[in-house]
C-alpha cells in the first residue's frame, strides 16, 4: 500500500514536520502577497508609487477605457493565435517524433529540451538578432534577391507571435508526444480493420485519443502567452504591448500600483476562466467524438 493514513502519533508528527516549511513559506510569500495585491486593487495610488489607504473601485472602472480594452483584447488574440500556431507546428512534430525508432526518440527529446532550458532572455535576444532590420533573416532574404528592401519584422506584432511560439512550443510538443507515444497501435489497426481510411483513422481515433495531450499542451501555451511581458517588450518594442507590459508600466514609470494590481487580478481571472472554458469544451468534444 503506497499511500496510507499516518498510523501513529509519530507519523502524524512527521507529516507536519515535512509539510510545515512549504506551507509556511508559500502562505507567507505567496498567498499573503496575492491577498495584498487584491486589497491594493481597491486602494488609491500613492504619490510616488505605493498606495493610499482609501477604499474605492475606480481601478476596475478605469479599465473599461477603450485603450485598455484594446490591449486586453489584443493580448487574448495573441495568446489564442500563439496557441493555435503551436498546435499546428507542434502536433505534427510530436506525431513524427512518436513514430521514430526508440533510440532516435531519446535524442530528439534532448534536442527539444536543450533550447527550452537555455536562458530565456538570451533566447529572445537571439530572435531579436534574427529579426533585426540589419539582421540575419533580412540579410538572407535580400542576399537571395527575394526583396530589395529589408522586411520590417522586429518591433511588430508578428515578431511577438514568433517569439511566443518559439518560447512555448515545447510546452505543446511534450504533452502531445507523451499521449501519442502512449497510443496503442492495435487501436489504429482496429480502426483500419473496420474500414476507416487514413484520414478517418486520424480524425476519429488518433486525435480523440490524444485529446488529453492537446488540452494540457494548449493550456501550457495559452497561460504563459497571455501573461507574457519580456517577449512583447523585447520583440514588440511597444508595437504590440500586452497586459504584462501594462502591469509593468503601472509599477514602474506609471507609479500606479493599485491600478496595476487591479489589472493583475483581472489577468489571473481571465486565465482561470479561459482554462475552465477550454477544459469544458474539450471534454464535450471528445465525448461527442466530433473533433477538429
Amino acid at each position: 500500500m503506497s499511500v496510507r493514513e499516518p498510523r501513529t502519533r509519530r507519523e502524524r508528527t512527521s507529516v507536519s514536520v515535512l509539510t510545515g516549511p512549504t506551507v509556511i513559506w508559500l502562505l507567507l510569500f505567496f498567498i499573503v502577497p496575492l491577498g495584498v495585491i487584491f486589497v491594493y486593487s481597491f486602494l488609491q495610488r500613492g504619490a510616488f508609487g505605493g498606495v493610499e489607504w482609501v477604499f474605492q473601485i475606480d481601478n476596475y472602472l478605469r479599465f473599461a477605457d477603450a485603450l485598455y480594452i484594446n490591449i486586453f483584447v489584443r493580448s487574448l488574440w495573441i495568446a489564442v493565435l500563439t496557441t493555435l500556431i503551436c498546435l499546428l507546428i507542434g502536433y505534427p512534430v510530436a506525431f513524427w517524433m512518436s513514430r521514430r525508432p526508440a533510440w532516435m526518440q531519446g535524442g530528439l527529446l534532448l534536442l527539444i529540451m536543450v533550447p527550452f532550458w537555455t536562458n530565456f532572455v538570451v533566447r529572445m535576444y537571439a530572435w531579436r538578432l534574427l529579426l533585426f532590420r540589419q539582421g540575419i533573416l533580412n540579410g538572407f532574404v535580400m542576399g537571395l534577391g527575394l526583396r530589395e528592401e529589408p522586411l520590417a519584422l522586429l518591433f511588430t506584432p508578428t515578431a511577438v507571435v514568433i517569439g511566443l511560439v518559439f518560447a512555448w512550443v515545447v510546452n505543446m510538443i511534450l504533452p502531445c508526444y507523451a499521449s501519442l507515444v502512449g497510443l496503442n497501435d492495435a487501436m489504429l489497426e482496429a480502426a483500419q480493420d473496420l474500414y476507416a481510411n487514413r484520414w478517418q483513422t486520424f480524425w476519429k481515433v488518433v486525435v480523440p485519443l490524444t485529446m488529453p495531450g492537446i488540452v494540457s499542451g494548449s493550456i501550457l501555451v495559452f497561460v504563459p502567452s497571455l501573461g507574457a511581458y519580456v517577449i512583447p517588450d523585447m520583440l514588440g518594442g511597444g508595437s504590440a504591448d500586452m497586459i504584462g507590459n501594462l502591469i509593468h508600466q503601472q509599477f514602474t514609470s506609471g507609479q500606479n500600483w493599485p491600478f496595476g494590481s487591479a489589472i493583475s487580478v483581472l489577468l489571473m481571472l481571465t486565465m482561470l476562466i479561459g482554462t475552465l472554458i477550454y477544459f469544458r469544451v474539450a471534454r464535450q468534444r471528445t465525448a461527442q467524438g466530433i473533433v477538429g
Partner: peptide
C-alpha cells in the same frame, strides 16, 4: 498551493512580492 506558483504569470508574482515587501 504547490500548483499555483507554477501557473501564475511571473509578472503577477513579481508585483505581488514587490507590494508585499513594500
Amino acid at each position: 498551493l504547490l500548483f499555483l506558483p507554477i501557473i501564475i504569470p511571473d509578472i503577477a508574482m513579481g508585483i505581488m512580492l514587490l507590494s508585499f515587501f513594500a
